[in-house]
Design a protein around this nucleic acid. Structure first.
Length: 215
DNA sequence: CACCAGGCAAGTA
DNA sequence: TACTTGCATGGT
């Protein structure tokens, strides 16, 4: 499929022309970005933003700060994001991972390569492929493509990928046809979400969708 | 009221 | 391997 690369670049250009730069990911520090990636699993970002703001108010947006909280106290603070017991445990697992391997420092973590870090992150219980790639791409600036529910939907509806397509297959579709360019991967994924939020819901309202007749 | 949101793990067949 | 289910709040 040598045409796929051209289609993806055309899709990117069209999204860029329509929506402009998205400036993702929201978050002031690499750790805040990683935290958001875990909390936003199957969850509206607005709920996540509220929890992060609340943690920030108490100066708890660091591994050191969160390490001091017992898991039940952590869960109480995570309540608005939903799945708070599950997510408190997952966050605890990530904090433990960061402490044991990288001195609780995202900067230390960033010194390792993408190839080394991805399997390590995936071995943490609670960090699946999308969360791992989000942390790698947006917190650590490693060129890995993030695939989310919108990406699946958009590519399937425009027949760029089969309906039944694994996460890894879709990730490879992008990475094999685009150069390993971190800003490009960041913008592309952000633009796909931007499109998806408005025009590619499960029950689509495709009137006025900018990709109405694409390709 | 129903449906959705920037998933994942664990259990089952 | 490929399904199914639990997890849970807040917005539309």
């Amino acid at each position: 499929m040598p045409r796929t690369g051209a289609l993806l670049r055309d899709l990117y250009a069209k999204l860029w022309d329509t929506f402009g730069p998205q400036g993702w990911w929201p978050g002031e520090t690499p750790f805040e970005v990683a935290l958001g990636a875990i909390l936003t699993q199957n969850t509206n970002w607005q709920n996540v933003a509220r929890v992060i703001a609340d943690l920030k108010k108490d100066d708890l947006l660091t591994p050191q700060g969160l390490n001091l909280l017992p898991t039940d106290e952590l869960a109480r603070r995570l309540r608005p994001v939903g799945y708070y017991n599950v997510k408190a445990k997952r966050l605890r697992n990530f904090l433990e991972f960061l402490a044991s391997r990288f001195q609780s420092s995202m900067e230390v973590m960033a010194e390792c390569t993408l190839a080394d870090l991805r399997p390590l992150l995936l071995s943490v219980t609670g960090i699946g492929p999308e969360t791992a790639d989000s942390i790698l791409l947006y917190a650590l600036h490693k060129p890995t493509f993030v695939v989310d529910a919108y990406t699946f939907r958009i590519l399937a509806r425009h027949r760029l990928a089969p309906e039944t397509c694994s996460y890894e297959e879709l990730r490879q579709l992008f990475m094999q046809h685009l150069p390993p360019d971190t800003p490009l991967y960041q913008e592309f994924h952000a633009l796909l979400v931007r499109l998806g939020k408005t025009f590619c819901r499960p029950r689509p309202q495709c009137d006025s969708c900018p990709l109405q007749d694409w390709p």
